[in-house]
């Protein structure tokens, strides 16, 4: 987005690491890092949550952490990256780092400090992560578990320490049975605690644009007579959007068509009384924009264009962190998407 602030990237001011560490040592090391950084102003802490990234591939975990750092000045967290390795030697390897970011309002700058901790947990302890994560949680602050890989088993006791769970359904597999399974698992999880889907946050501009097309009165009426909906996109987004429309508009599955494509596009045809209308939200790569267009048989036509929304992990994370709540509309969309996939 053009009005995105780009604060100077955070810098690592203190580091510590140890293989085969006791948790007590790691906790002491974290306080020491702060004390050593006190000269640079790290004595006071501003933190809004403890964020724990669990599992995922190395690449996934890395991109999670760089997003967390990028948000550091606006949304400072204590970040933990936990790699459970039940099959390796029973030991905990730890690496801690104190980061400094800067907030700036153009005239004044303020340093903001936040800690990042990597824990590789080998052996049986890997199955008891709650006992490891708990001591690092900041008092009185939400604890968010982020699963960049497949969703966790809803019965995993680690989930009990969480205030909310972050997942990303963007990269759903092209195997529909697997997609349906992931969606059902997430629904079960959502029954227990708030689940926030980064993919859903990324799709918000599309949802807003489509919903906005129905704001004018003559278009609103047409929502009573939606005849067909087509959603294009990759498996994750197209199923989720298809599910959303299926559920919110109370359609029949055969009225929703899903089609594989690189980019999301939604089109909807409706007829009610004398009136007919077509509603399309699509992407225009040359203009780097998303278009929403409504054309009604009565002659009313309106359209809107937006700069192509920033679909980076950082932006999605920022949106999600600002709204760590259960989302019933997403849950309904997911349930309907599971039906579409099966």
């Amino acid at each position: 987005m053009a009005d995105t602030l780009s604060p100077p990237g955070p810098v690592a001011v203190q580091r510590w690491q140890k293989t085969g560490a006791h948790l007590g040592e790691v906790l002491d090391a974290l306080s020491n890092l702060r004390r050593q950084g006190a000269g640079q102003g790290a004595g006071t802490r501003t933190a809004v949550m403890t964020l724990v990234v669990v599992g995922g591939t190395d690449a996934e975990a890395d991109s999670c952490l760089s997003s967390v750092r990028a948000l550091g000045s606006h949304h400072p967290c204590r970040a933990l990256m936990v790699r459970p390795e039940p099959d390796s030697t029973p030991a905990i390897d730890a690496e801690a780092c104190l980061w400094q970011a800067r907030t700036s309002d153009g005239t004044d700058e303020h340093p903001v400090f936040f800690e990042e901790l990597h824990l590789r947990v080998g052996g049986q302890a890997a199955s008891h992560l709650a006992s490891i994560v708990g001591p690092f949680a900041l008092a009185d602050m939400p604890l968010v578990l982020w699963f960049p890989g497949p969703p966790p088993d809803p019965a995993d006791p680690l989930l009990q320490v969480a205030t909310a769970v972050l997942v990303d359904t963007r990269f759903a597999s092209s195997d529909v049975a697997e997609v349906a399974h992931v969606y059902r698992t997430l629904l079960e999880l959502a029954n227990r605690q708030p689940v926030v889907d980064l993919s859903w946050a990324r799709l918000q501009p599309w949802r807003e644009l489509l919903a906005g097309l129905f704001e004018p009165e003559p278009a609103r009426e047409l929502l009573r007579g939606v005849r067909s909906v087509a959603v294009k996109g990759k498996p994750g987004p197209r199923h989720l959007l298809g599910g959303w429309l299926l559920a919110q508009l109370d359609l029949r599955t055969r009225e929703v068509t899903l089609q594989d494509a690189r980019h999301v596009e939604i089109s909807l045809h409706a007829a009610y009384g004398e009136e007919e209308g077509t509603f399309v939200v699509s992407r225009d790569d040359t203009a780097r924009a998303v278009w929403a267009r409504a054309t009604l048989s009565c002659g009313v036509a309106h359209s809107q264009a937006l700069p192509l929304p920033d679909d980076s992990l950082t932006t999605a994370l920022s949106a999600a962190m600002g709204n760590l709540r259960a989302d019933r509309v997403w849950e309904r969309a997911l349930a309907a998407a599971a039906t579409l996939a099966s």
């Binding site: 918000q204 807003e208 129905f214 704001e215 929502l223 919110q248 109370d250 309106h302 019933r328």
Partner: peptide, 20 residues
Amino acid sequence: EAAFDNPLAEGLDTVRRAPP
């Protein structure tokens, strides 16, 4: 009320968007 009329607006923060 408008959000109720327009089921697609449910859950979106439409209260802070200007109407047509």
